[in-house]
């Protein structure tokens, strides 16, 4: 079954055509890579899927057409988005609060939120960072936390924008293990050839506003 699909998606930003008719679909549990040169429209594509960019064409989440801000509000609780720059994404005072944000917003009870946060801290082996202010984290730690704070949302799909940039060997390995393990569908925008070879998922190439399978 298709969770997310896109038909003839077109986006214009400041008079420039950034996406020129993109077609794409993602099945439940499917994991894919999107690669391609800088400025080809990869980030814009993810942002459009989240409803942050005005577009023409069709975006469907589980068969439902998304048009208005309200439609996308529904999607955003269930499709997670990991920013290219974790500094832009993290805004809570500490790691723990950052992870608790999404479940609290969902209206989950405090005790349960605590459990979710505990589990995620353990899963990503970042328990020692629990009370650390997010701005004091290292670049790699920020990246892991920016993934973890989306995971606590328990999303059906996660869109990730260059998630392995700046990770050391150990953290890279941890993230790859998470990618293999998770039940969520994944769309990973990346240039990391080692990552693509290791996981061997389907690859798409975004070039000049067009998406084709490699």
């Amino acid at each position: 079954m298709e969770v997310l699909s896109v038909e003839d998606l077109r986006v214009k930003l400041e008079g420039r055509e950034v996406l020129k008719g993109v077609n794409f679909s993602l099945k439940k549990g499917e994991k894919v890579f999107i690669t391609g040169p800088n400025g080809a429209g990869k980030t814009t594509f993810l942002e459009t899927l989240m409803g942050f960019v005005p577009f023409e064409g069709e975006i469907l989440f589980k068969g439902k057409h998304l048009k208005s801000e309200d439609d996308f509000a529904l999607l955003r609780g269930r499709v997670g988005y990991v920013f290219q720059n974790p500094d832009d994404q993290l805004f809570a005072p500490t790691v723990e609060e950052e992870l608790a944000f999404a479940p609290l917003v969902k209206g989950i009870k405090r005790e349960q939120v605590k459990e979710i946060v505990e589990r995620t801290l353990r899963e990503f082996e970042i328990k020692h960072l629990r009370n650390k202010p997010t701005y004091k984290l290292s670049g790699g730690e920020k990246r892991i936390v920016s993934v973890a704070c989306v995971v606590t949302m328990d999303p059906e799909v996660i869109l990730l924008d260059e998630p392995t940039t700046g990770l050391d060997r150990n953290k890279w390995e941890k993230l790859v293990e998470f990618f293999e393990r998770t039940g969520s569908s994944l769309v990973v925008v990346t240039h990391d050839t080692k990552l693509m070879e290791r996981l061997g998922w389907k690859r798409y190439v975004m070039e000049d506003g067009k998406l084709c399978s490699a």
Partner: peptide, 16 residues
Amino acid sequence: EQLQLAEKSAKSRGFI
């Protein structure tokens, strides 16, 4: 811009 990014981040995690 900083504020808009934080808003975007919160929204993308289901904040309304």
